[in-house]
Design a protein around this nucleic acid. Structure first.
Lengths: 148, 148
DNA sequence: ATAAGTGCAAATCGTTTGCACACTT
DNA sequence: AAGTGTGCAAACGATTTGCACTTAT
């Protein structure tokens, strides 16, 4: 369940000179125990269930801190705002490659060698952007949907 | 510059029994002249520059209509809300390549040779999917945001 | 002790909605 | 004439910010 150990994060926070507060410990605790993506209010509700009351504003601030430490992966899932998950893969350039059926929505992760990294390197030099991540998504009709 | 002819859209709108109003004509006009993705407020500002005042609410309503007619492609680029672009290419392997600043949300279309088409071809053979489209998106920090 | 961090409420941003009025058909 | 579509302002949900207060160092 736990991807990243709360203690490691807490240590990093202290090493960097940030204070170790209840809000930070609690939010990290929740994130460490959930492998799914959670929204700020999800975290807020989960904390309420533990009888801990941390203001949403502070939750956002903890999330920002973790993001700035590179410990958090966030995504937008269409509706309901941004969602967050701990992510210890410090490997700087994240990527996600998918093959998605445009009819039934079935999604496959494409594994194996990343065919984009050299393009990213060139782009980084050419554009002046510091590239952190890329997505490559193919949309098409899967064999099953093609039959019909 | 123009991907989809405004007249075709206008015709479709009338065929479907929707009324042909100034707001609809103007918004379609803007979209037809811009190949980039535009947000509702981008459209609003562009219209102001033409001395046309259409309420944002109406712009959203026109966008919803076009979306329901399948003429609009919309995407979320992390910051600044949803962005829209006309899109009539109902068939052939369509692609979109972008470089997006993860801080300010600035988006650039990457033009030139498609570096993915051969990957798509191979994937089509290997997977049995009939690939119609792909996106390649690079996220990073743009030179301006890096300065700060 | 002192600065960093918090809670709260107000502010903001993108988007939606209710309603009276305007315009296409 | 009838009813669709509009503008406006208020409502909304997610996120941010200002400020006085608390707490970790």
């Amino acid at each position: 369940m736990t991807f990243v150990k709360p203690d490691d994060i807490i240590q990093l926070i202290q090493e960097r000179g940030y204070r170790l507060t209840t809000a930070r410990k609690k939010v990290i605790g929740i994130l460490a125990n959930h492998s799914e993506f959670l929204g700020a209010y999800d975290i807020h509700h989960l904390l309420e269930q533990e009888n801990t009351r941390i203001g949403v504003a502070s939750i956002y601030r903890v999330l920002d801190l973790l993001k700035s430490l590179g410990l958090l992966k966030s995504e937008e899932f269409g509706v309901g705002g941004e969602k967050y998950r701990l992510d210890n893969e410090h490997s700087h350039h994240h990527h996600s490659h998918q093959l998605i059926c445009s009819q039934c929505g079935h999604t496959e992760e494409l594994l194996g060698e990343c065919p984009i990294s050299h393009i990213a390197d060139k782009l980084e030099r050419d554009s002046g952007y510091q590239i952190e991540e890329h997505w490559l998504r193919f949309f098409g009709v899967c064999p099953l949907c093609r039959e019909q």
